[in-house]
Amino acid sequence: MSTTAIDTQIALNGALNRNAPIRQSAGAQVTDYDNRQTVGKITVDNPKMACREVNVYYGQKHAIKNVSLDIGANEVIAFIGPSGCGKSTFIRCLNRMNDTIPAARVTGLIKLDDDDIHAKEIDVVQLRARVGMVFQKPNPFPKSIYENVAYGPRIHGMVNDKAELDQLVRDSLERAGLIKEVEKRMLEPGTSLSGGQQQRLCIARAIAVNPEVILMDEPCSALDPIATAKIEELIDELRENYTIVIVTHSMQQAARVSQRTAYFHLGDLIEIGDTDQIFTNPRHKLTEDYITGRFG
């Protein structure tokens, strides 16, 4: 299955590339609203994850239609689009969170490095340890701050003793930029923190297991602007060590934090490309309309 999928994709890319001469002037080349073929280059040189012809069905509803794209190592890629476009559904495919929804069915190929994440020998537990996730609403466990961060390392058996665990928890909180705020209150419940701190706690919790990819599903939508700014800064720093996929409804945020951007519309991947290009020179009429605020 994987070879056919990739062959198709190569053919697809060829077709796309022929139709996509670089032009710096404003205005889209694809003006047909009904044309839902992905515009832009879906591949990267050093992909961390690769998705080919991914489809998601919720019962009868076709929520993601034939989406193919690469996620480069140590890049921040942003998924944007109007609400209900499927960007959150798609990101949940990347660590198989859709498995928890009984009605959801996912087809297509998704690879993490060289592993097909749907393959039998890949365990979902292992996959999710490698691909961490941060949710829309901060969801710290009803435990202490320390225990929140220590949760992942504990269940996976990552550390050998208490000292290592302490070290790991401190490191993670430091990387999440939270250590100064919580150093003195490690044993207080995670829910006692402010919203922005809670979200950074969730990020610390995710990076404590040392994942390769971090998925962020609208991580700032429940936060105030100052907290948002902190998280955005953090995302930029995290890029050094992790590959980050972020879903956002805010175009400004996508522009600020990401290197590449993918625009989703009603389950289709409409356009993908460098963030600068998408925002300054969208090639599809739908992307342009969205970016210029005609809907969304």
Partner: peptide, 9 residues
Amino acid sequence: DGSYALGAT
């Protein structure tokens, strides 16, 4: 979700 996303069974 938070727990599953960390790879918990």
